[in-house]
């Protein structure tokens, strides 16, 4: 449980920082990095969840644009190489996971006797 509490605290900290970054970016920074956003205010609340969730990327891109490091050719690099790699997950891994899990069921095709699991030790129960 302590680990869970720690993870949640980290998550909350991340989101609070994100909220601050998002507020500054959407109120001020966005006009500096995106010409089409200048004078357009109504759509900005819609960007708030995204800015909060990916604030490290927002800061990184913002910095790159401010420094003039944005690569003009970047938008035209072929995107499909990585897509093929990722699609391997759905082509091979997903059917394998489903079939494997069904085979492993205690009352599945490879039926195995049910196993009585040992009760957790006193110390483990509170981890």
């Amino acid at each position: 449980m302590e680990t869970a509490e720690r993870l949640l605290a980290i998550g909350q900290g991340y989101l609070w920082i994100g909220l601050v970054v998002a507020a500054v970016f959407l109120a001020w920074g966005i006009d500096r990095v995106e010409a089409k956003a200048q004078g357009a205010w109504i759509f900005r609340p819609l960007l708030l969840p995204g800015a909060v969730l990916i604030w490290p990327l927002v800061l990184w891109r913002w910095l790159r644009v401010e420094r003039g490091n944005a690569c003009p050719q970047a938008p035209y690099r072929p995107p499909l190489t990585a897509q093929r790699l990722f699609s391997m997950i759905v082509i091979f891994a997903c059917p394998a996971i489903l079939m494997g899990a069904l085979l492993l069921r205690q009352d599945g095709p490879l039926e195995r006797p049910a196993v009585q699991l040992a009760a957790p030790q006193e110390g483990q129960a509170h981890e």
């Binding site: 995106e34 956003a37 960007l47 969840p49 995204g50 970047a74 938008p75 995107p79 897509q83």
Partner: peptide, 18 residues
């Protein structure tokens, strides 16, 4: 949360797509 066209333009298509 990043499906708006702004994110596509701001992050750039390769990063957005990734």
């Amino acid at each position: 949360a990043t499906s708006h066209d702004f994110w596509l333009s701001f992050l750039g298509p390769p990063l957005w797509k990734a």
